[in-house]
C-alpha cells in the first residue's frame, strides 16, 4: 500500500488527535466526522476522552476543526503542567455531554452528574465550563464544590487546641 498511513503529514501547528471508534461516518464535502461506539481520543500528554458518540465539526471558512461534541458517558482527562519540578496535574471531567470549541478553547460540560475532579477538589454542577487556556473552572446555576482537605494540612487555618486529654494522661486511682 502506497498511502503513507500516519506518515506525519498533519499540520505542524495542530495536535494530532488519534480517534478510535467502532463506527464512523465522514461528510467529505463539509468535513464533519461522526464517531459512534467506544470512542476514544488520546492526545499524549494533553488530553484523553472517552464517550459513546463524538461529532467533530469544521470551520466553514478554512475547514479546520471548530468543535467537538461528545455525548453518552463522557470522561475527559486533561493533563496540565504542574509547578516546576512537580508532577503534571491531572484533571478529570465527567458529564453527559461535553462541547469543546477550538476558537476559544473552552470545554462546556453538562448533564445530570457533571463534575470536574482536580487535586484541589471536586466541582459539581449542571453545567461546568473549563477554560483550557487558563485552566479556570466555573459552574453556572447551582453548584457544589468539595475542597480537598489536604489543601489545608499546612495552612494552619483549622489548627486549634482541643479539650482532649494529653496522651498518657489521666487520674490516678
Amino acid at each position: 500500500m502506497a498511502v503513507g498511513w500516519m506518515a506525519g503529514s498533519l499540520l505542524a501547528q495542530d495536535a494530532r488527535a488519534p480517534i478510535e471508534s467502532d463506527w464512523a461516518e465522514m461528510d467529505l464535502k463539509g468535513g464533519a466526522y461522526h464517531y459512534v461506539g467506544n470512542v476514544r481520543v488520546n492526545v499524549p500528554g494533553l488530553l484523553k476522552l472517552t464517550c459513546g458518540d463524538l461529532l467533530a465539526q469544521p470551520q466553514k471558512e478554512n475547514n479546520r476543526l471548530e468543535s467537538l461534541v461528545a455525548t453518552t458517558n463522557v470522561v475527559i482527562e486533561i493533563v496540565r503542567l504542574g509547578r516546576p519540578g512537580a508532577a503534571p496535574v491531572v484533571i478529570r471531567a465527567y458529564g453527559d455531554k461535553a462541547v469543546y470549541t477550538a476558537t476559544n478553547e473552552v470545554v462546556t460540560l453538562s448533564g445530570g452528574d457533571t463534575r470536574v475532579v482536580a487535586p484541589q477538589g471536586t466541582m459539581r454542577g449542571t453545567e461546568v465550563i473549563y477554560d483550557v487556556a487558563t485552566g479556570r473552572v466555573r459552574a453556572t446555576g447551582h453548584q457544589v464544590t468539595e475542597l480537598n482537605p489536604e489543601m489545608f494540612r499546612t495552612s494552619g487555618l483549622f489548627r486549634r487546641t482541643t479539650n482532649a486529654p494529653a496522651a498518657g494522661g489521666g487520674s490516678k486511682p
Binding site: 501547528q13 494530532r16 461516518e25 465522514m26 467529505l28 492526545v43 467533530a56 476543526l65
Partner: peptide, 16 residues
C-alpha cells in the same frame, strides 16, 4: 461525498 466505515475505525484528526 459520504464515507461510512463500519469497524475498527482509526483516525488522526488535526486539532488546534
Amino acid at each position: 461525498q459520504r464515507l461510512v466505515i463500519s469497524n475498527r475505525v482509526k483516525t488522526l484528526l488535526a486539532i488546534p
